[in-house]
Amino acid sequence: MIKSTYLEAITSGLREEMVRDENVFCLGEDIGAYGGAFKVTQGLLDEFGEDRVMDTPLAESAIIGAAMGAALMGMRPVAEMQFADFITTGFNQLVNNAAKTYYRWGAKVPMVVRCPSGLLPNAGPFHAQNPEAWFFRVPGLKIVAPSTPYDAKGLLKAAIRDNNPVLYFEHKDLYRDKAISQELPSDDFIVPIGEAFIRRPGVDITIISYGKMVHKSLEAAELLSEDGIEVEVLDLRSLLPFDKNMILESVKKTSRLLIVHEDTLTGGIGGEMAAIIADEAFEFLDAPIRRVAAIDTPIPFSSPLESYFLPNTEKIVIALRDLAAY
């Protein structure tokens, strides 16, 4: 069987859902003839026509607002942000409109906003952010962030079928990463929203991570294993709602926790994870809860600054060793 990249898995998920349900359609900047900035929607225009693969003006407020309107009318739109960074101009449409409509008026808003996020080399402050935390505190939204092709496809299909607005964060640096490509099942499958996954079982330290940092965490865990320290790597997959039970179970087993995310530290999702563990598993902790994240600055352009800014395997290893020695 042919292995799928993360990007191919997303495309495949989109295609399958569009075939399955004629209410599913895509809209976004240059997603039609151009195939999207990252070519996720390449080929879909030819297959489904311009009514279902719609190019839009450069206006995220309009894209998200139109998607919401379509969703209210019974469609299942999948809106593409060219870069997740640009979602801010559609912030009101998401946070005040889409997120609150079901609560306020009882109307379902089954829409997906695809957000290509994360750092590609030398992308600078406006094309490489991980803005999931901006939405993490908004009741009414769902957020997913797959780390593998299987999850990318399964979570996208689950998001499209979900009756709530779902933000789908796809990491740009994973798109064409051959190292993580997978053979995918040929049958129709989904990955349920809200379920985490243990990527690597361990007994000594738990890492909670998501997106690309799952792979960096796995590399670090492999290195620690050489010292006899077995690190459990928990891939959140869904950020909102997140799998609290699995997190608690893992931490209760290992008693030590490291949270790793590519987003900047302050106000990141890691803070909430730490708070929940401190609240509900305090008496199971044998060490302080630690976080490895990007430093609290805009994303630098230059390569040396970039590596200084970003979390990486080495920084995770340092934090793990520190925790193990605690």
Partner: peptide
């Protein structure tokens, strides 16, 4: 812990 190189919060 090299605090400058890495954003680790320590209690």
């Amino acid at each position: 812990v090299n605090q400058e190189d890495i954003a680790i919060s320590t209690i």
